[in-house]
Design a protein around this nucleic acid. Structure first.
Lengths: 109, 109
DNA sequence: AAGGAATATTCCTGTCAAGGAATATTCAAA
DNA sequence: TTTGAATATTCCTTGACAGGAATATTCCTT
């Protein structure tokens, strides 16, 4: 798992930017308006997201369109797979326990 | 999505600790040995993980057993759901495009 | 009660990241 | 070619965080 994904998302404003981009590409000005931030800070955050591979840019004249890249999220998803396995194991263990408990109850009655 | 999960996982050694705990509870000494770190640093990282709710402790005499908590990972998984939706949409769009391309090819022949 | 093992905390220092302010760059339009 | 809009970069300061070293705490054993 690539750590830089986590560090990039660990900053509140950057996470907000990512969530915004979920609905489609946005320009720096768009993000500045919606998040009520200073333009330079937005640019800086976008730079970090860019370096982390979380977004990509497409220049169009004066503007720059920032778009979400899904690869890192897919990597994250794949990484989580192991953890999913673990909690499913635990869930099954719990189920079995409840089954036994139920069986014991039936015997008592 | 709780940011502290990301910040906690954004540190290499902490991520390694988490991966270790995937195989079951471990003691501070265990982790210290396996990761070749200084014991105080391990304790400090565990403290961060504890505060972030990624692990839980169970004291047993001198030792302390650290165990992975799955809730934050489940939260992460749920958060990713939205992104999964997006990439599935894109995949379907790609499929439809290929279908049309194929249809056009057939017409040509 | 004393000593020692396991763990946590504190203090210090260096590094890094974030915001603010100012400035540089790039491009379109007149 | 000058002006203005959109964006990026730089410099500065401040706060957070990681590692190292030392020390405190807790509990078992003798």
């Amino acid at each position: 798992m690539d750590i830089t994904t986590f560090s990039a998302l660990a900053e509140p404003n950057r996470l907000r930017i990512v969530e915004l981009l979920l609905d489609g590409p946005l320009t720096v000005g768009d993000i500045t308006d919606r998040l009520q931030l200073q333009q330079p800070q937005v640019s800086k955050h976008l730079r970090v997201l860019l370096d982390a591979g979380l977004v990509e840019v497409q220049a169009e004249a004066n503007r720059r369109n920032y778009k979400l890249r899904l690869d890192p999220f897919q990597e994250l998803d794949a990484w989580l797979e192991t953890y999913r396995t673990v909690w499913e194991e635990r869930f099954e263990a719990l189920e079995q326990y409840l089954q036994k408990l139920k069986a014991k109850e039936n015997k008592k009655n």
